[in-house]
């Protein structure tokens, strides 16, 4: 079954300032005590968004002006730390479909791409300008163009980066690699016969 080609993502955006946002913050460990990913959207940034008594803290994701955003603007090294896929799953399940940041941690980036969620990078100044624009007009429609590698809003645009492998996977609808991996059955069998494994001896 062919997957959806992710050529561009459009929608409103929200800005989460700060560098080195780790996956423990994105999805605190207690939300990992689950055997499915269902319902994880509610865990998103839980401890940053809520006090222990459940009342809301000031946080961009609690700001009614940015409810329903599909694009998340972030800083550098976003998604560092734990490899938990729960983090991009929570972001996806909270309705986001693309991230624009200065840089992304590698495992997070791979996990997000495999979920069809592009993580494009751009210089700090471009992200800051876009953040100012959505602060002025939270209803601004932002487009992350994965094919042309640019972000457009109002009458402005800036270039973004995405490794060619991820770009190709997204625009060709191959972001979930399982079908491709399964194809190589003979090569896999040959490697299994050739390569050592750990056996009880």
């Amino acid at each position: 079954m062919p997957l959806e080609a992710i050529k561009q993502v459009s929608g409103r955006a929200v800005y989460l300032p700060g560098d080195d946002i780790d996956t423990d913050r994105i999805t605190p460990a207690r939300y990992l005590k689950v055997v499915t990913f269902d319902g994880l959207g509610e865990a998103l940034f839980y401890d940053e968004r809520f006090n222990p008594d459940g009342s809301e803290k000031p946080h961009p994701l609690n700001d009614p002006r940015f409810k329903g955003a599909r694009i998340m603007l972030v800083g550098a090294n976003f998604g560092c730390g734990s490899s938990r896929e729960h983090a991009p799953q929570a972001i996806y399940r909270a309705g986001f479909r693309a991230l624009v940041g200065e840089s992304f941690a590698e495992i997070f980036f791979g996990n997000a791409t495999t979920l069809s969620m592009p993580c494009v990078t751009a210089p700090k100044a471009d992200i800051a300008a876009l953040a100012r624009a959505i602060e002025e007009d939270p209803n601004l429609i932002v487009t992350v163009d994965v094919e042309r590698l640019e972000v457009r809003y109002a009458d402005k645009a800036f270039k973004v980066n995405l490794p060619p492998t991820a770009q190709k996977a997204l625009v060709e609808g191959r972001w979930d690699p399982i079908a491709d991996l399964l194809e190589a059955s003979d090569l896999i069998e040959e490697a299994h016969a050739r390569l050592p494994r750990a056996t009880l001896s």
Binding site: F37, K168, P177, D180, L187, A198
Partner: peptide, 28 residues
């Protein structure tokens, strides 16, 4: 020794000799 082929998106299909799993990231 472990690269099997280049995938259509340009990544490598790499054979994994040993896979370790635990209770948190495997059920899904």
């Amino acid at each position: 020794a472990h690269a099997l082929r280049t995938l259509p998106n340009g990544q490598t299909q790499l054979f994994i000799d040993v896979h370790l799993i635990h209770e948190v990231t495997s059920p899904q």
